[in-house]
Amino acid sequence: MSEPVVDTTHEEGETRLSTGGLGRTLLVAAGVVFWGWLLLRWANDWLGGLFVPVGQPFVAPATIESLGASIPGLAGAFDALAFAVEYLPALSEGLWLTLVLTVLGIFFGFFIAVPLSVARVYGNLSKYVSLLYTELLRGTPLLAQLFVLYFGLNISGYVPGFLDGVFANNAAWAALVGFILNSAAYQSEYIRSALQSVDTGQLTAGRAIGLSKVDAIRYVVLPQGLRFAIPGWTNELIYLIKYSSLAAFITVPELFKRANDIASSNFRYTAMFTITAVLYLALVITASRMMNYVEDRTAIPGLGTGSGR
């Protein structure tokens, strides 16, 4: 069982990204370029080729290569860029699936995590049920859990008709179920320690004005606890962005799977996985920045560490 301090250490590691004037400007610029490209790319491909044919790069790789050839000394860099441009359209599809699976996993996981954590802190028998669930899910590898769901229970064989076809490959449903269940366990740990850090006097004061225990938890403890849980939540979001890559091993064509498939056909592993790493980094950095923003926006003067950031 982890203690709150553990979470903080990891959180700082994840979210404390390079600062400083120039670094910051570069980071923002890179973010604008990345998201600008990605949104245009998705718009183009979903709307049936708004700017260029579906799946084709915005700028032909050959153009970039010939551009590089005219500048001595930079030919190598332009070659690399041309290579990236050639495969980015395919990777952008994988990025979409990575993002969707992560966001939905966190979102639905949250609704399981809140009752789990409330049970852990305030429950009697339910406390042990919740403890068992979180310990089991946090004590085994996510990849093993995905194997259980996909190979063992064949979840993707039982996708109800109206959901069938939402994802190109029904294995994505198995991955999503895995992410929801796994994320619920981790989120409940973060929320639990956040709830426990809410001063007990708050609950007492809530009861003293006549709120029932459930209402006092709902209106007094949870609003504070969930704010304390934001750093942990950031952590979890970043965790899931990265670990959603494991869905590749149950055949889900997310970002890593796409990159891996391309690499095994063109054998340019180094280049492909460098690009992939950069794309994941872009997602992770965006997520951590976004969550810092959320944390600042929801911060309440004098409450927890929110104001000190």
Partner: peptide, 11 residues
């Protein structure tokens, strides 16, 4: 820390 472990391993 920002790259999935599977990408690091393959790399």
């Amino acid at each position: 820390r920002g790259t999935p472990i599977v990408v690091i391993l393959i790399f």
